[in-house]
């Protein structure tokens, strides 16, 4: 395997890891309206991801940083071309992060309610936008001979990309509901399971539509396998959820997310960003990669560190493995 192919794989792993982890963070954020019936239940949900959401988000920073280091052209064209969607994602991640940390710092009704609105909207919007961005990325956008994006933001909004956005939104929300069932106790846990059933079925339909469309347009043999795995994992997650096997359901919804993004990256390869204007202007793995020396250095850093990071993040989940219920939420006091 060539070093730049390895780095394409590693970046795919980083993005997939990000969506696996922050997928349920976004889902929990969306479920704070609807699934949670009152403020205490909302706090139960938020606290299931309390100790981990920040660490989960670093997968995004690392994916972006690794793209910059390993594929500067990919990073440059993607981030400047998708300017407004990325701006919206940034604003949401800023407000959402501050909302988690500041919501409980004052006890006023309006203060808490405003931050709760922020948590909902700033989870929902990125969950949608990431699907839109990845749909556009796999299908291709107007890229000129100078490697720059030559379209406008309207070129990014198509029925296909909107479907992609809807798919990730519902998929992440399903993942969040399954996570909520796994991490909470009492009434909300059972409600989360019934929410998961509805969300999982919707996600299944959307998966067939969006992943099928992607497969038909830009797929290959390997991506077909990913499609099958993703849809099967979704179905299995639904079965496990129905049977009350919450750990297995969560593992399956995670596999469904991972396989869905594997499909996207397999369909993308050997391009990193296809040009919809002229295939010759597409950015490819080989041409947009950094020098072998840089990739070698980065490999020496990433290969030992990635398992270490996964190790200590897994330990965090072990430390906070206890289920949370309304009885564990302390009285609202500014602290």
């Amino acid at each position: 395997m060539h070093l730049h192919d390895f780095w394409f794989l590693l970046i795919a792993v980083l993005w997939t890891g990000y969506f696996f982890l922050e997928g349920f963070d976004f889902g929990i954020g969306v479920l704070t309206k609807g699934l949670a019936k009152d403020r205490t239940e909302r706090r139960v949900l938020i606290n299931t991801i309390g100790p981990v959401w920040d660490g989960n988000e670093v997968w995004l920073i690392t994916a972006a940083g690794a793209t910059f280091a390993a594929f500067p052209d990919w990073y440059a064209t993607l981030f400047s071309g998708f300017y407004l969607p990325f701006l919206a994602v940034l604003v949401c991640l800023i407000v959402r992060g501050v909302a988690f940390e500041y919501r409980h710092k004052r006890t006023g009704e309006r203060w808490q309610r405003n931050w709760e609105h922020a948590i909902f909207w700033c989870s929902l919007l990125p969950a949608f936008l990431w699907g839109l961005v990845f749909a556009d990325m796999v299908r291709g956008v107007p890229i000129g001979a100078d490697k720059n994006f030559s379209g406008t933001v309207l070129d990014l909004i198509t029925p296909y990309s909107l479907l992609g956005g809807l798919f990730t939104l519902v998929l992440f929300t399903f993942h969040g509901a399954v996570f909520a069932a796994l991490k909470t106790e009492g009434e909300i846990r059972h409600r989360a399971r019934s929410y998961a059933t509805v969300l999982g079925m919707t996600a299944g339909v959307l998966a067939l539509a969006f992943l099928g469309w992607t497969q038909a347009e830009s797929g290959n043999g390997r991506s077909l396998a990913a499609l099958v795995v993703s849809v099967a994992a979704l179905a299995l997650a639904l079965v496990m959820n129905h049977a009350g096997r919450e750990g297995w359901a969560f593992a399956c919804s995670g596999v469904a997310i991972a396989a869905a993004f594997a499909l996207v990256f397999l369909a993308l390869f050997p391009d990193v960003l296809p040009s919809s204007v002229n295939p010759a202007w597409s950015l490819t793995v080989a041409e947009s990669a950094s020098s072998p020396y840089t990739l070698k250095i980065m490999t020496w850093v990433a290969v030992p560190l990635t398992p270490l990071i996964i190790g200590y993040q897994a330990w965090t989940y072990w430390v906070f493995r206890k289920r949370i219920g309304t009885r564990h939420i302390p009285a609202p006091a500014a602290h």
């Binding site: 280091a69 390993a70 990073y75 950094s290």
Partner: peptide, 12 residues
Amino acid sequence: GDVFGAPLAMEA
């Protein structure tokens, strides 16, 4: 990117 990206990725 070839030079500047590396410390950024290491930072992350």
